[in-house]
Design a protein around this nucleic acid. Structure first.
Length: 467
RNA sequence: GGCGGCAUAGCCAAGUGGUAAGGCACGGGUCUGCAAAACCCUUAUCCCCCGGUUCGAAUCCGGGUGCCGCCUCCA
């Protein structure tokens, strides 16, 4: 079996075929750093981090690049309001981005280029477009000549004429055509600027990704990804710029994730209905949030409510409890050397199923369902009077493996046994032997008050910290 | 106006031609000194509505209703 990916370009699932065998070049559009990201902005990092992890799990060597837009109108505006320099502000929020997303187990990209660091390449890119007559300078700005690029609209499946009809863009003073978009913007008085052949200014939004992809990954890459709202105009424009210059396909697969909604409406900065990830993870388990995101197929919208996040947390708890109970059994039962084959085979089937589900356009929803079924299987096994270490460990290893792929910590790092707790449990056991249940219950309640949950099992007392 | 998505149990959510996964919540039972955890059972004769194709449709086709998104900065 091979991996199927839904390609926005063709509007269907296609068998994934990398350019170079065993390698994947992948680019994900990153945030404009003028504030903390909101939870909607957190979806692409989570989704495509999972895609990356899965591709690696399937043996690919993934080159993963994701940019930061560290210069643009909004950043300039925010910096002005805060009386801060643009670079100071953007640097601050780049750090915040890494901090917040790492709480979600999002791994850093191999490379996080910024506009600032790529300036020379961006300017050269524009110069070449001007040379090829795909771009023109006008009043200190430079624009892309959209109608010269025949394939314009191939990603959003609209013809130039259709786009022009729906266009609400006023013909700017400097534009030849309303659909032309800016590659280089002349600086206004007091704005941060860079020197260029067209005077002082800064790059337009779309050009950075074209320049970065070319510089760091090459003319053609395997996967280009981002939020659904980027497909037009951002990605359409990237294709126009890159393919006009390189005369090669920019990316073979275009992937777009759905939105996070609040009250069934898109969460967005302009609507003001957003929740900052930074705030959310102060109050909720970041892992539960990641689980919540992955529980829905990445192309579908997710409606966000506190209740749904709570229920996701409970769901995740269920799997973690199974893993904890398996580990308890490993350390608290004898290995009777029983026949394992039947169980080991069963466990392997779950692995095959998990791969099958993920191969199908990264269907994390079904992959998680597989996890729950594995959990049930493990719980049934735990009901058995006699178990073997080999089977118990195989269960734990598989949970861990799935957890790694999904970026979820299912196997909790074992904390050192707290001697005090152990000693109290011993006291309680003594009291129970003496049928002094009042004292036994009091000890249990006291521990519960400190977040320690006791569970009596035929193999002895099991305890855990309440999360 | 153009392009696209969605509508499945109380809630969330898979499934896209072969007779409805999974989770949360609810109820009953088993286990337990009592619990916890877990297991078992129960919970959609049916997948927005109408019509059609088919031996067979939640799944395909036509029509309709409702909600959402992109076409403007936006993940």
């Amino acid at each position: 079996m091979s991996i199927q990916i839904y390609n926005t370009l063709t509007r269907q699932k296609e068998t994934f075929q990398p350019i170079e065998e065993g390698k994947v070049k992948m680019y994900v559009c990153g945030p404009t750093v003028y504030n903390y990201i909101h939870i909607g902005n957190a979806r692409p990092p989570i989704v495509f981090d999972t895609v990356r992890r899965y591709l690696e799990y399937r043996g690919y060597d993934v080159q993963f690049v994701s940019n930061f837009t560290d210069v643009d109108d909004k950043i300039i505006k925010a910096a002005n309001e805060l009386g801060e320099e643009v670079p100071t502000l953007s640097k601050r929020f780049i750090e915040a981005y890494h901090e917040d997303t790492s709480a979600l187990n999002v791994r850093k990209a191999d490379l996080h280029p910024t506009v600032t660091d790529t300036m020379e390449d961006i300017i050269q890119f524009i110069e070449k477009l001007v040379e090829k007559d795909y771009a023109y300078a006008s009043g200190g700005d430079v624009y892309f000549r959209t109608k010269k690029f025949d394939d314009y609209g191939k990603l959003s499946h609209q013809s130039i004429d259709e786009l022009r009809l729906g266009s609400r863009i006023q013909v700017g003073e400097n534009k030849e055509d309303p659909l032309d978009f800016v590659l280089w913007k002349a600086a206004k008085e007091g704005e941060i600027y860079w020197e260029s052949p067209w005077g002082q200014g800064r790059p337009g939004w779309h050009i950075e990704c074209s320049a970065m992809v070319k510089k760091y990954l090459g003319d053609t890459i395997d996967i280009h990804a981002g939020g659904q709202d980027l497909s037009f105009p951002h990605h359409e424009n990237e294709i126009a710029q890159s393919e006009a210059l390189n005369e090669k396909t920019m990316a073979n697969y275009w992937m777009h994730n759905g939105y996070i909604n609040i009250n069934n409406e898109k969460m967005s900065k302009s609507l003001g209905n957003f929740i900052l990830l930074h705030d959310l993870i102060q109050k909720y388990d970041p892992q539960a949030f990641r689980f919540f995101m992955l529980n829905v197929h990445y192309r579908h919208p997710i409606n966000f409510t506190d209740e749904l996040l709570d229920s996701a947390k409970t769901s995740l708890e269920r799997i973690r409890t199974t893993v904890e109970n398996l580990e308890h059994r490993i350390t608290h039962s004898a290995d009777l050397g029983l026949e394992n084959e039947k169980w080991l085979e069963k466990i392997d089937q779950y692995k095959a199923r998990f791969i099958e589900e993920m191969d199908d356009d990264f269907n994390t929803s079904n992959a998680i369902a597989t996890l729950f079924d594995l959990s049930k299987e493990a719980n049934v096994y735990l009901q058995e009077e006699n178990t073997t270490i080999e089977v118990l460990e195989r269960f734990v290893a598989l949970f861990d493996e799935f957890g790694q792929v999904l970026g979820l910590e299912l196997k909790q790092a074992k904390e050192l046994l707290d001697e005090e707790i152990e000693s109290l449990i011993e006291q309680r056991n003594q009291a129970r032997k003496e049928k002094n249940f009042q004292l036994a219950d009091q000890i249990r309640d006291d521990l519960a008050g400190q977040g320690i949950i006791l569970e009596d099992t035929p193999q002895g007392v099991r305890w855990k910290r309440k999360s």
